[in-house]
Design a binder for these strands. Sequence first.
DNA 1: ATGGTAGAAACTCTA
Length: 256
Amino acid sequence: MAWTVASWNVNSLKVRLPQLLEWLAHHRPDAVALQETKLEDDKFPALELAAAGYQVVFAGQKTYNGVALLARDPIEACAYGLPDFADEQKRVLSGTVNGIRVIDLYVPNGQSVGSEKYAYKLNWLAALERWLEQELRQYPNLVVLGDFNIAPADEDVHDPWEWEGQVLFSEPEKAAFHKLIELGFVDSFRRFPHPPKTFSWWDYRLNAFKRNRGLRIDHILVSKALAARLSGSLIDVAPRTLERPSDHAPVLTTID
DNA sequence: ATGGTAGAAACTCTA
């Protein structure tokens, strides 16, 4: 039986809940990782999602960040945050669904190369790498997905020359992404053919979506054991065409 | 040309 997992940076779950419910009804993914919920936990729409057939776990805060996992079957052994990296920002949430360990990430944006937030991003990614090395040993069936805020290769950027050296596409960020891959992950999207210039995020400004001036910064990495079972991958741009969209499109991967 | 838009919240920060 095929198993589908998705990731979507919703940029405010309060605003995007109607779009999310519609999207869940249409795609019926088995597990979903959300980022930028921007909700404190007492405001999380657990009842609405339960009515849609999803169990939920979440780690939120006011105004910024916030992650959540949704699944049709129970989410077990939940864990919060990066170990050995004290952080008030709610960016990491883990759980086991249908025997597959799922880690939802909202990687720091980094703001601009050389800024304090950029240094925080690189330190955060180094801590992530150390942790995922251990997680891979513990969980052979491991999915790490979310908003990585890194476009890993030229093919993932509408204009690599324009973006060269910029945050989301700087060499240290790309190096950090490739070190994650080298731990033993596969970028599920690139296991299947896609049209050129397929992206997952477009700036709200300057008609970037209409002009397809996007980046592919949302990723679903799967361990080698799961990579052998991949049967498809997709970025669903439809929600980005709606009124009042998130700036990110959902990404999906199916495992047989 | 260093802009512009969106979200949350509070007249600014983050992305």
